[in-house]
Write a protein that binds this DNA or RNA. Structure first.
Lengths: 182, 182, 182, 182
DNA sequence: CATGAATGAGCCTTCATTCAT
DNA sequence: AATGAATGAAGGCTCATTCAT
């Protein structure tokens, strides 16, 4: 319709529209035609870029998980509290956006339906958690793994229900203090 | 199949069947006729006991939240680590059941759709968390609230992905130690 | 439930309730359970007194036609304008009631579905009309039959939309004058 | 069956099919899938052109009323008996078709359900009737209005039960003579 | 690439009817 | 007689998906 709509731009616009619509209605109550409307394209076009609605769901779901935050903090080679700070900041930045926040919830509930999502969540909860634990506490230990779960869980709690009386930085700082107090 | 069964029994049977089916398919991909089949009743009967599928969803969703665990531990008058142990045990017991575990995920994603669920989750994340924090740390403090979020978050993480190498009791004990280390 | 509910009383109460409900919703959009509620009886009881909903519909439909008015005027042996006055008064009395008025419309539309109603309407429009025409004009004539149709049609028009500026008596009197002016 | 037909053609074909089916079964006993079959389209397509079955019902119902006949005769500027002849011919032509005849009955019974139909019938029975009366009798009078109701009512009676021994032209001619005899 | 008419499966829900109590 | 739980067929409608244009 407009010249600058190059292929990737349109696909991206569809994904972004889908994120907004999915976050409001959930993956299965969001009709494709609403996504098309939100993206300003025709319904048919969505099926040109995505084989099926499920493919779009999975694309969106993947983007709503915090995997890339953890990966980038791991790659940056940080250790100790630093890596926790990195992850904490990343979470706060990403999930400040209510669309992402709501999407995260919807995505978690997909786990029982799509293997692809289940695997991502597995990786997140097992390997990544262990990796980060080692980086923080030096070596693998039960206590370290438990602490990391408390860390991730704590972040998630904060994200889902941002308490008005605790600012982001305060929360992250306190959380890190608590779980590294061991 | 015809005739009178005891009223409450039938309703309960429908709810239990719905829990199983919802946990497998999610609330919106689970067709009512599957629930009926699972419960051994006719499709029509479900609408005799529930005005709509949504009413059934909400009934099931409410049951899958851990509110009653926290309430009962609060009511028992426990303090300090004791109340955390109570809650920890309660969580483990309830969510050992994979149906409940899966349902919890689905329920959390309902928050953006149903006020009733949003309110329950609000109460859980704000008031209840603060109440428990006071019971544990004596008085209201930022650090206490953060710690409690780490506690609940940690429990949730464990529930969602039960790591094979950390048994329930060990996890809860360690988690309590960590967050009360302040 | 109450002692004085003798058989015929209950049946009659159901019919009267059905008339009210049918007049509001139409025969096919009126659910049986609403009739039961309106009559203050259980849904099951309606099927004790009537083999099916259709039987109840036909019973109510028959009562809403003006057959018995015409019959009683014919039987009373009146002639000329007198019989028209008799019929006119009968119509006004019966269809002053908005329930009957609305029911008449619904009943007329049943004709294509139920033979029994079609027959009644046939009798009304053919034989009865001719009989009355003879009583009024002395002998059978085309003009007489046309006039009688104008009479019945005129009455029906008045009934369906009672114009505020023409009282019943005035209407009937004028109508009779017009069609006997031949 | 797949591909683009001309938009208005398809919609019109659905309406015509609906008229046939509604006339046979009545508006509420006619299932949408029968209309689809009759129109040679899929069930879904009906809901592409009409928001709901009700919308289709109202579209069909409007077409079955004689409003446009009266309007066109009024607009043609005719007076006296001429306008009655115009209307008479119009009625005969339109309701010679048994589908239209049956539909008229069904439509009249919709009045208590849909405002839109009630309004059309109001206009027909009040304003239009008065307008025609003035055209015929020169000025507004009670007698004129009564006569017009006798005219319209007479036409409707003839339509609903076409007596074999009175041909259309004869009926209309006689009817006009009778009601203008005043 | 892009559109939107067309399809058809499937879902939620209603409702007449039955029948154990 | 009377109740209301239970049934099952059927209906309206939504929606992912296809495909002619």
């Amino acid at each position: 319709m407009i010249g600058y709509k190059e292929k990737e731009l349109v696909k991206e616009r569809i994904i972004l529209a889908a994120m907004r619509v999915f976050s409001r209605y959930g993956f299965f109550k969001a009709p494709v035609h609403l996504i098309a409307k939100e993206a300003g394209v025709s319904k048919g076009l969505i099926f040109w870029y995505f084989r099926s609605k499920q493919e779009l769901i999975i694309e969106v779901a993947k983007r709503s998980l915090p995997l890339e935050i953890i990966d980038s903090c791991l790659e940056s080679g940080l250790n100790g509290k630093k890596i926790l700070e990195c992850i904490g900041k990343g979470y706060m930045k990403k999930y400040k956006n209510p669309v992402q926040r709501s999407l995260l919830l919807h995505t978690m509930s997909l786990e029982s339906l799509y293997k692809e999502i289940a695997e991502k969540m597995n990786s997140l909860c097992e390997e990544k958690t262990s990796e980060v634990a080692e980086r923080v506490f030096g070596k693998s230990s039960i206590k370290g793994k438990v602490a990391l779960r408390a860390f991730f869980g704590g972040l998630m709690c904060y994200i889902l229900r941002r308490p008005k009386d605790i600012p982001e930085e305060t929360f992250v700082k306190n959380l890190i203090d608590i779980i590294t107090c061991i």
